[in-house]
Structure formats: C-alpha cells, structure tokens
C-alpha cells in the first residue's frame, strides 16, 4: 500500500510517500508499529500518536481501523485550513 505523510510528519520522516508491504498488518496501529521499526526518523514521527490523524483511502478513521483492501494510508496532524 501507499503510505503518505503531510505537514510535520512529512518533515520528520523526510519523505512524502512510500510503498509498504501490508502483509500481516490488520489495523492502522499495526502499520504504525511496523513504520516505527523502520528507523529513527519514523520512530520520531510516531513518537506521540495522540497528535497524529490518519486517513485510509482518503477517509479519516481511527487507529483501530482495518487495513483490509486499503491502497492508500495517510498520516497528518489535525487540519488547520480556513
């Protein structure tokens, strides 16, 4: 699946998107654990997930959401448009 990062998550991971093998990842929380293990930058980005929102296939969901059939997962801080 395609994993995307916006705003300070993009800056902390130093990437805007990457391909991640979703095998064995049932929920968003499982994905976050797998991403944390990728290295120091990812670990820093996901240090405090209370400050992080997630969208699966462009719909905002909770961290307990299923990744079944997901093609695009995006992580970002609370929105500040307007």
């Amino acid at each position: 699946m395609k994993v995307m990062y916006f705003a300070w998550l993009r800056e902390k991971t130093a990437i805007s998107s990457e391909e991640v093998d979703g095998a064995g990842l049932a929920t968003v929380s499982d994905l976050v654990e797998a991403l944390r293990a990728k290295g120091a930058r990812h670990a820093a980005a996901f240090e405090d997930v209370s400050a992080v929102k997630v969208a699966v296939d462009q719909k905002v969901v909770g961290f307990d959401a299923s990744l079944e059939g997901a093609t695009e997962v995006a992580f970002f801080p609370p929105m500040t448009g307007g």
Binding site: F6, A7, A55, V60, A74, F76, P77, P78, M79, T80, G81, G82
Partner: peptide
C-alpha cells in the same frame, strides 16, 4: 461551511 472546512478539509498551515 467555514466550521466544517476548518476541521475536516486536509489543509495545513505553516
């Protein structure tokens, strides 16, 4: 429209 835009549309200001 404003209230929902501010909290539900994926924009970020720096």
């Amino acid at each position: 429209l404003m209230d929902y835009l501010k909290t539900r549309a994926p924009f970020w200001k720096k």
